[in-house]
Structures are given as C-alpha cells and as structure tokens.
C-alpha cells in the first residue's frame, strides 16, 4: 500500500513543525544590543546578534539578580524580588523591548544594533 492514514499524519505533523519552527526563528532573530543598567548607570552591553552560547550574568546585590544571555535574546533568570515581574517578562529579543526589576533598580533594554552604512559623505 502506497499511502496509509498514518503517513498523512506524519506529513501533517512535520509540516506543522516546520511552520512553527519558522515562526519561532523569525521571532527570535534578535540582532539588537542589550544594555543593562543599574540606577541609570550602564553595567553591561551585549551584542545579541553576536552572542554565542548562553551565559549567566550574576549581578548580585540585595536581590541576587541573575541575567541569562543567549544568542539573540536576554532575560532575567532570577531575582529575589517580591513581584517577579522582571522574571515573568521573559525573553527580550527585539529592539525597543525592555524589562525592569524595580526593587533592584536594574533595567535591561534592547537598542538597535549598528546599522549598515549605505554611503559616506565628506
């Protein structure tokens, strides 16, 4: 028998998987620069487009804040703060996104990466 019902399920499953993966990848194509600030002063700067592998940044302090830097994304991995808003904000990957841990006064925001230069004047 050339085609059985399960074949169709198999095909459908993998087509869906491919579609979902495509959507995920497009969403996570973060190329911005993550700027980490405490109380307004810059602590770190990560180029998410160039980040290779995951990295945990322990910011310590009263709330033992830990950041998780991945290729294309950054997130609060841990904070001892009460509301946990920063952790629940999840992964930031697009320019303009930001997460803040108010009690610890730590903010993470993503700014646009270096734009390509179209021409030089002068």
């Amino acid at each position: 028998m050339i085609l059985k019902k399960k074949d169709l399920f198999l095909i459908a499953f993998f087509l869906c998987l491919a579609a979902v993966l495509l959507l995920c990848f497009n969403k996570n194509a973060g190329t911005g620069i993550a700027v980490v600030e405490r109380n307004g002063t810059e602590l770190y700067r990560f180029d998410l487009g160039k980040q290779k592998g995951t990295q945990v940044i322990d910011l310590g302090g009263e709330y033992h804040v830990k950041l998780l830097v991945e290729p294309g994304a950054i997130s609060f991995q841990h904070s001892d703060c009460h509301d946990q808003i920063c952790v629940r904000t999840g992964k930031l990957s697009k320019p303009g996104q930001a997460a803040v841990c108010l009690p610890a006064k730590i903010s993470v925001r993503i700014t646009e990466g270096q734009k390509t230069i179209d021409a030089f004047t002068g």
């Binding site: 028998m1 050339i2 085609l3 059985k4 399960k6 074949d7 198999l10 095909i11 993998f14």
Partner: peptide
C-alpha cells in the same frame, strides 16, 4: 507496518 511507502520515504528523508 503502520506506514505506507510515502510515510517510509518521508521518515527516511527526514
């Protein structure tokens, strides 16, 4: 053998 020739082919290719 739950899969037909198509299913086998897809599984093999994947």
């Amino acid at each position: 053998s739950p899969f037909g020739l198509i299913g086998l082919g897809v599984a093999g290719a994947l």
